[in-house]
Design a binder for these strands. Sequence first.
DNA 1: TAGTATATGTCATGTTAGCTAACATGTCAA
DNA 2: TTGACATGTTAGCTAACATGACATATACTA
Lengths: 127, 127
Amino acid sequence: MEKEWRRSMPLLSMNIVMQLTGLTARQIRYYEEHELVQPARTEGKQRMFSLDDIDTLLEIKDMLSTGVNIAGIKQIFEMKKNPAAKNDTKQVITDAQLRAIVKEEMQIAQRHQRASLRQGDLSRFFR
Amino acid sequence: MEKEWRRSMPLLSMNIVMQLTGLTARQIRYYEEHELVQPARTEGKQRMFSLDDIDTLLEIKDMLSTGVNIAGIKQIFEMKKNPAAKNDTKQVITDAQLRAIVKEEMQIAQRHQRASLRQGDLSRFFR
DNA sequence: TAGTATATGTCATGTTAGCTAACATGTCAA
DNA sequence: TTGACATGTTAGCTAACATGACATATACTA
């Protein structure tokens, strides 16, 4: 789409971006240093920002004010880029272990009649 | 599914959870305080954890070691719960503003022949 | 009933993240 | 060529985060 073009074109100088975002140059460089933005560069090494960059910066600003730190923001950005990421809660406990633990717990529980929360015949869930 | 049952059943005492996760009681309580886990309680107010809770705790431990802070973890958990969340980069700059900015920039650029990055006739993208 | 395990709350502390300030140097429009 | 603007770097401040450490009270276990 044509619009995408515009938003990703590096046109804006540091100066303008500072005004547009209310961030200091140092802050912006800091975020770049931590790979949260990747502005383009002129041949003379000066940063040129796209409007997407602006949005990103504003997002950063927003999340920081929420208490999320740089590492967190980075993580979140990655999740957005790759929503399919194998980010499922990795089951560190296997079903085998699980069964063992549960079994043991159940025995203790039965021995002492302290199936506190779920009263009744819990054992039907495990064998 | 039957398995889900097991994993979400609150069975495990603080003691066991500490061993299973390698976390201190203080840490676990701290995470609960910040609403990252919601263990069930016995009538006597004692925490009872499910295996899902364990997974959550291990995830927290992992992310913390990665440098993500509590606020970030919270945010990420919410994103997982609600992937559809209106988390699209909110366009703080309207297309109108955008056009104005770009136009101005373009004029300067043309005046000074410094369309630095993208050489050529940029103006065809904007009017 | 004694003893161990938890709960909750408060105070303390180390570490570090995010930032400011200040340079000396380099770019770039006029 | 000049002055405003940017650059990378270094040094240092400050606030807060995540835990530890206690103290006291209540809950379980034996």
